[in-house]
């Protein structure tokens, strides 16, 4: 008990961004958790089907998209660091690079969808494709929303809104973008690789 009182007062713990965005992130993550579990349990009763059709997915495209989202997330984290250092030009530049990674993700995904839809695959083809299309498309929409947010942040950063004393909006948007990355980190092995 004494040791608690004797502990030095370390730097105050701080939640980046607005509290509200973290509640929103949590809600989104719970929705995806249900979706991921639904995929895994549906697979348990269709193992052969899932294993067979999983092999029709483009592993390279999935891995490339993982690289793009992680790198995009990294750029946005660098933008937040730049804001804490008050380096205005660095904030905008890193946000733009993060946005471009997101755009790259969408392009790769569109090629993937074009291949699948071109082959006549739809939501009703089978259980595996139902999950593949709905899960990845649900995530796809989150990437689009993340890019809308990054666009707003980039515009604001060009006006010099963010800096050492106020990076709240930037941190909130960044947290959402990292969540999009975090979700894909689970989605990629689950849908493309695990068998």
């Amino acid at each position: 008990m004494n040791s608690i009182a004797a502990e030095p007062a370390v730097t105050a713990r701080r939640l980046p961004g607005d509290l509200a965005i973290w509640f929103f992130i949590l809600a989104e993550m719970l929705a995806f958790a249900v979706f991921f579990a639904a995929y895994a349990f549906a697979r348990a009763s269709h193992v052969e089907e899932f294993n067979q059709y999983q092999q029709t997915l483009d592993l390279n495209a999935g891995a490339l998209n993982t690289v793009l989202l992680i790198t995009g997330s990294w750029f946005v984290a660098l933008a937040v660091q730049a804001a804490h250092r008050d380096e205005q030009a660095d904030i905008s530049r890193n946000l733009l690079l993060g946005w471009l990674c997101g755009a790259g993700f969408l392009v790769v995904k569109c090629f993937e969808y074009a291949g699948k839809f071109g082959a006549g695959i739809t939501l009703s083809t089978n259980t595996f494709y139902m999950f593949y299309i709905s899960l990845t498309f649900f995530h796809f929409m989150h990437v689009i929303l993340g890019m809308v947010i990054l666009t707003v942040l980039w515009k604001q950063s060009r006006k010099g809104v963010y800096g050492r004393y106020d990076a709240n909006g930037l941190e909130s948007g960044a947290a959402y973008w990292h969540m999009v990355d975090l979700l894909w980190i689970v989605l990629f092995p689950l849908v493309y690789v695990m068998r």
Partner: peptide, 11 residues
Amino acid sequence: VILDFMELRQA
């Protein structure tokens, strides 16, 4: 991602 990108290590 949670600890370093989201900066939750110090949260």
